[in-house]
Amino acid sequence: MLSCLGLRKDYVTERGAVAAVAGIDLQVAAGRFAAIIGRSGSGKSSLMAMIGGLSRPSAGSVVVNGTDIWDLTENELAAFRNRRIGYVFQFASLLPTLRLIDNVALPAMLSRGPGRNGDAGDTYARASALLAQMGLGDHLDAYPSEVSAGEQRRAVIARALINDPAMILADEPTSDLDEQTEIEIMDELLAVNRERGTTLILVTHNLALAEQAEQIIHIARGEIVE
């Protein structure tokens, strides 16, 4: 269960302060599929970043399962990003010098840490299963530059799932893909939401897609509009 209260994000620029998110209250129940829509520049990405623990709010709170994530310490917040959130960015977001399998395994490796319990072999087995599930079973050892944009995005989804997060945050994950690939990627995300019960918050311009959501959040100029 996610709840935001009085959430604000002000950017200080040369031309003065920009209120990218200007006071948003919002709740998303666990396991839901929520769509965020709104024009470009309306503050969707800023909102998602605050929910995902990537950008500190200027004011307000983000409470996930009873914990205000912005009250956590630096390391606790890192653990929150690592365990609870799977983030799918608007842009290519794989590390170019790592193979797909390493990219996917990385979040799990980070939280295992050196010396912690758990077997790296296990992690890699899971990573390769996830990649196979995303149709990339033949590309485990490929580097990101060696596969298509759509395949890269699938690998990102696999990475988002490696720690079995409670919530997937996808910020226009298909904006740079062709229509057919977009449909395939969206199907993967919806399947994850349905089959695993993972909360899915999706920013999209695709209204047909948003219609499928259980909850639609419409944002304009940093505020929720009905």
């Binding site: 690592n82 960015f89 720690n163």
Partner: peptide, 11 residues
């Protein structure tokens, strides 16, 4: 990106 997927500052 590393921070976003949960890398600590020390890492």
């Amino acid at each position: 990106l590393l921070k976003a997927i949960g890398a600590r500052r020390s890492q």
